[in-house]
Design a protein around this nucleic acid. Structure first.
Lengths: 340, 340
DNA sequence: CTGTTAGCGCTTTCAG
DNA sequence: CTGAAAGCGCTAACAG
């Protein structure tokens, strides 16, 4: 059994209060400080964060909930979140919803019971009820790369709609008019990208054909399935906009399998630039998201909330905030210039 | 402020003990059970796991430490670990070493202070000192996909050496004799794979050329660099064995960039079959690891340890265990049959 | 089956 | 600056 503050007390002859003060960075006589440090080293004392948490009602731990931890996007996000949090002396507790809203909700309850000081969430759906337990417990939460339909939270997103429009506009400027879209309406993010696609098409006066709109789930499987359908179309589009990294994977797979030479036979613009574009023979033109900024801003907002909880501020500063990050279109060689 | 067990007491008129017993699945009169449940619903009571942990000295939380959470391999591993743990009613606390041994050690200390009941670790090095704090605190730990040089722990690994030999043997059976290897000696796993390469070469009576052995770090960057050197060699090998997923990525990148047609110009066998082989035009022949089994067996061992800590068993059962998982070689089309 | 009591390890008043 | 004492929310004997 590990040493406790009591053992330090026996060893040094000082009181619990003094030792506790030392532990928390308070002022202690140099002489006592030395005694305490010697005892700590001798007994290998380590603070019991559980006991500390019970009395301070703060665990210096942030819960991080992602919709799927096996998804590369989330892995990178977590990496940045972790680095930022440790900068503030906070640890993180990661939970994985595995694309299951029920599990996601149970995870939040788990985090609440664990008394995390705050929650950072990459949500799987647009329904805020998953965070109900956190709201009830007054635990601040920040959404990354998503928003809810029915309730506002602090959030960090990219300008999804404009980014998608930018990507589709790039195709249009390269002479394409028959442009298909593979996406989803299941999440805020994917929904916005859908809108962006339509914006760009309408702005250019192009027809939005329902047989060119593939709206399903954000998975490699769906991307693969949709692209296969596109490949087999009689009146095939000359270009495809794929609205998510997992979809990109499926699109590329389908093309390879069908031995489609791109961009000769069909042009592609994707979303997210996570290594894929680098390993492909024909590199993908894609919208790149500022992954690190998601972590930096998300943590920043959460820290502010946590501190203002301790020391309430004016209502004015309490409004929700949505940080909108900028994206860039990375030009690969997956788009062919069409003769006008 | 959330409701406590005391509030339930006031609401129901029952004693703390009865309520606590109910909470922990003990027998309570149906009448009282109803009262308690009503109060819990009314007051939105949730157990405070922190307080519970303080007295039971158990948090029902497992610490999971990975060397790099942005690495796909770890993301998938964590996914499986999480699913297994929740089966046992345990949560997990994920920490990311970000390929920094110092940070890894600090992370373990963090987990120890958080009083996790056990640790599952995908280690970044072969030096057991990173787990020193856990050992001191008598927290059981299981290593996944790795071992230490200087100390034995429970572990789950694959038969790295044989798997690598199998992969290289596959090349040899296809008529290759000039086979290069890109790998590392920084971790147990990569070191074993190096040995396996040599085994296969020696068994076949082939020369192990030092200029065909690329030993560096397990990164996409190194794979890219090494493959570029290979491509530019005067006496170029006809085949390459890449010993890790990240290396595979770099190898493929280098070939694409140099416009090398494989397997026509050079054959490749890789390690790990994480989506990459599926999105490549020429699918990669590679050793596939049983990702799910890592999670299943790792959690199984840890649970056993945790329970025997509570109820010590005979010494005989206390020996360390190393589960060795089997792999398969997935045949893609990245290897060319050479005329004898 | 239920209630009383003590105490987990720590922080935090409040005196001194 | 230091010490004594109370208490965070819960569980675990032990009586009843």
């Amino acid at each position: 059994m590990p040493a406790t503050i009591k053992d330090i007390k026996e060893e040094t002859g000082l009181s619990l209060a003094t030792i506790s003060k030392y532990l928390n960075g308070g002022n202690v006589l140099p002489e006592n400080r030395k005694k305490i440090e010697a005892a700590i080293n001798k007994l290998h004392y380590e603070v019991n964060e559980i006991a500390r948490g019970l009395v301070t009602n703060s665990t210096r731990t942030i819960g991080v909930s992602v919709y799927d931890i096996a998804d590369m996007f989330n892995g990178i996000l977590i990496h940045h979140i972790g680095r930022e949090l440790s900068r503030f002396g906070y640890g993180m507790m990661v939970v994985d919803a595995a694309n299951d809203v029920k599990k996601e909700k149970a995870n939040i309850r788990f985090l609440v019971n664990k008394k995390v000081d705050g929650i950072i969430m990459v949500p799987s759906s647009m329904d805020s009820s998953v965070l109900a337990d956190a709201v009830k417990a007054e635990i601040p939460a920040v959404l990354l790369d998503g928003k809810f339909k029915d309730r506002t939270f602090d959030s960090v997103t990219i300008n999804n709609r404009e980014s998608a429009a930018l990507a589709v506009g790039y195709l249009i400027r390269h002479g394409h008019t028959k442009i298909a879209m593979i996406g989803s309406n299941s999440s805020y993010t994917s929904n916005e990208r859908l809108k962006g696609y339509r914006d760009a098409m309408e702005d250019a006066g192009l027809e939005i054909r329902s047989d060119y709109s593939f709206v399903g789930e954000l998975s490699m499987e769906y991307g693969y399935k949709a692209m296969n359908e596109i490949i087999r179309m009689k009146d095939r589009p000359t270009a495809v906009f794929s609205a998510n990294y997992e979809l990109n994977l499926g699109v590329v797979m389908a093309m390879n399998e069908a031995k489609i030479i791109y961009p000769d036979e069909i042009s592609v613009v994707g979303f997210d630039n996570l290594i894929l574009s680098q390993v492909l023979k024909t590199s993908l033109t894609a919208v790149e998201q500022p992954m690190e900024r998601f972590g930096v801003k998300g943590v920043e907002i959460l820290m502010k909330r946590i501190h203002e909880k301790k020391k309430p501020v004016s209502d004015e500063e309490k409004d929700f905030v949505n940080i909108i990050l900028n994206t860039h279109l990375i030009e690969g060689s997956s788009v062919k210039e069409l003769a006008p």
